[in-house]
Design a protein around this nucleic acid. Structure first.
Length: 150
DNA sequence: GCCAACGTTGGC
DNA sequence: GCCAACGTTGGC
């Protein structure tokens, strides 16, 4: 899951009550569909975009499966969607809880050099989705880099 | 600041 | 249903 740290960082998640937050504001159908596929207990990476360095910075866990994102119904919210009906909410969110900060953030640059990550969704050309799948192999590889710093 | 790679909107 | 125009994301 991508986030701009100036908006909401992994440290913000660590400081949140119960280290948990509702991952709201996703307004892309593909990304939304990935959210809806998430299961309680699924592990996720938190990735900082639009920062230097861009990197996977921590691990979190899905603690609540997809439910309607309340911000879509809030006219004062940036993510308000006047076309979404409460009877059939268009946008979903999940709740995630911080599990662990990586000792060494794994930079985008670093990930690009790792053979195991050649097919990683995050690294594919032109990908702008804020929620992306990670395979088991990719997950283990990034965690390893995050712990060893190499 | 630029621009590629999208996704969305709206005229037709 | 097509597609041009426009808006956004995010890496560089």
């Amino acid at each position: 899951m991508k986030t701009e740290p100036t908006t909401f960082s992994f440290d913000d998640l660590l400081r949140a009550p119960r280290k948990t937050t509702g991952w709201d504001g996703v307004r892309n159908y593909q990304a939304r569909n990935f959210l809806r596929e998430m299961k309680k207990g699924d592990t996720v990476f938190i990735y900082h975009s639009n920062t230097d360095p861009k990197a996977v910075v921590g691990i979190a866990e899905v603690v609540r499966e997809a439910y309607p994102d309340p911000t879509q119904f809030d006219p004062k919210d940036d993510h308000h969607d006047p076309d979404s009906s409460p009877d059939d909410p268009r946008w979903s969110q999940v709740d995630v809880r911080a599990v662990e900060k990586l000792a060494h953030p794994v930079s985008l640059e670093r990930m690009k050099t790792a053979r195991e990550l050649a097919g990683m969704a995050l690294l594919q050309r032109g990908n702008r989705l804020s929620v992306l799948p990670v395979s088991e192999v990719e997950f283990r590889a990034v965690v390893k880099m995050g712990k060893s710093g190499s």
